[in-house]
Each structure stands twice: as C-alpha cells, then as structure tokens.
Design a protein around this nucleic acid. Structure first.
Length: 228
DNA sequence: CTCCAGTAAT
DNA sequence: ATTACCGGAG
C-alpha cells in the first residue's frame, strides 16, 4: 500500500464529498444497532427500522431484550434478514448489558474491545470495526465491499487480500488519526454508492485521472452487459 | 458456498 | 424484471 497514493486519494475524495462527520445516530448505542442492521443492506432501509424502534421506544438494550423476538423482527423488518438480525441484535444487547454497558466498555483498550465484540454472534470484522470507530472513536480502519472495489479498480490492492491484511496496511499509513479514519471510510462509502458503483460513473469521478480502470488509460472497459 | 429478505433504483 | 445493498453464520 503506497502511502502517498492513499493520502492523495483521501484528499481528493474528502474535498469532493466531505466533510461528512459520520456516523449518523443520536447515541453510541444507536450507532451500534445501525452497524448490525446495515449488514449487506441499504442504509435507507436501516433508517426505517431505526425509526420503528424509536417510535416503539425500543432503542435501548433493555427494551430490545424485553421485546418478544417476533415483535422485534417486525420492527426491524424494513432492514431485511429480519429473523437473523433480530437474533443478532438480541445477542449483542445481552453481551452489552452483561459487560456493564457503555461506561464499562469505554474503559477497555481497543484490542480487548475488538476481541470481545468479535465473540458476539452476528458481529464480524466489519461490524466490529464500525462500532469501534464510530461508536467508541477508536483508531481502526473499516474495510468493506466499497473499499475493496475502489482500491482494486485503482490498482492499489489485488482484491482477494484478507480483511485483517487490508485493514493493517491502511492503518499503517493513516496511524491513529481517528477523525481521518472516520472521514476516510465515510467518503469511500459515499463514493462507492454514487460514483464507483458496480457500473462505474467514471465521468463523475474526481479520481479519473489516476485510475487505471477509468477512461484515462481505457483499460478494463466498464462492464456494459447489454443495454446501457 | 449458500442462505438470509425487504426496499429502491435502474 | 433485474440489480444492489456500509456481511456473517452454518
């Protein structure tokens, strides 16, 4: 991972899309719930699920656990996989309360907190890092599908690197700058949703000049299956 | 590798 | 009607 290249990419994306000041949410706990609900799911759907939880005054760990799992499933239904996510939310809330809540968790060092988060059923590497960075403001980089797609198209990674490997190489460049790690992941997500999509909109891209996939060098022409 | 599922853009 | 979605577990 070329440090200068990564910083250059960040500057361009940040100047164009930012500042974003993520993650949207009125509390740390809301961020954690959102991180679980947004797994492989559009954020617009998660917003509806969170709105339902708020309307039912259920956006608190005790309240979520007090709900019959079936009712919880109906509340979060718009976010998809509602049976799976109902169970995952419950597992998370049970762990959260068992450990003593946010005050206790905030006192743990990042390595400890990450290991414990990963022990919860339904919390994998990306969700754990979302929570670490955006709820606990810890210096970690979140690797997601957008990151792999963007870095891969830019020729910065091979594409099949392990999660931890990619995370470590970015953190090695950015360091423990939490605001920058926050903004970096945020702009990658926005760029991935709006510009560097599965069918990239290269004409709208601020990285066009330095992207081997883009029209600059005209390699790997964007897949245009049939119609366009 | 397959399943999990509703929602919105295309 | 198809595609894609801020993944993770079995």
């Amino acid at each position: 991972m070329n440090a200068q290249r990564l910083k250059q990419v960040f500057d361009r994306l940040s100047n164009h899309h930012g500042p974003l000041n993520w993650w949207p949410g009125d509390s740390g706990f809301e961020v954690m719930v959102g991180a679980i609900l947004t797994q492989n799911t559009a954020w617009s759907n998660v917003e509806q699920a969170i709105a339902n939880l708020k309307r039912a005054q259920a956006l608190a760990p005790e309240r979520i656990l007090a709900l019959p799992p079936e009712e919880l499933g109906q509340l979060i239904r718009p976010s998809g996989y509602f049976n799976v996510k109902s169970k995952r939310l419950r597992s998370f809330c049970q762990w959260y309360l068992e450990q003593g809540g946010e005050a206790v968790l905030s006192a743990w060092d990042t390595g400890m907190l990450r290991t414990q988060l990963l022990s919860v059923n339904g919390v994998g590497p990306e969700t754990a890092d979302d929570i670490l960075l955006y709820a606990f403001e810890r210096p970690v980089f979140v690797v997601d599908a957008y990151t792999r797609r963007l870095f891969s198209r830019l020729g910065m990674v091979d594409g099949d690197e392990p999660y931890e490997s990619l995370r470590a190489s970015v953190e090695a460049v950015i360091g423990d700058d939490v605001p920058m790690l926050n903004e970096l992941h945020a702009v990658i997500v926005i760029h991935g949703k709006d510009v560097c999509r599965p069918r990239p909109r290269c004409s709208d891209c601020v990285l066009l000049g330095e992207c081997p996939t883009g029209q600059g060098l005209n390699r790997f022409p964007p897949a245009t299956p049939r119609s366009s």
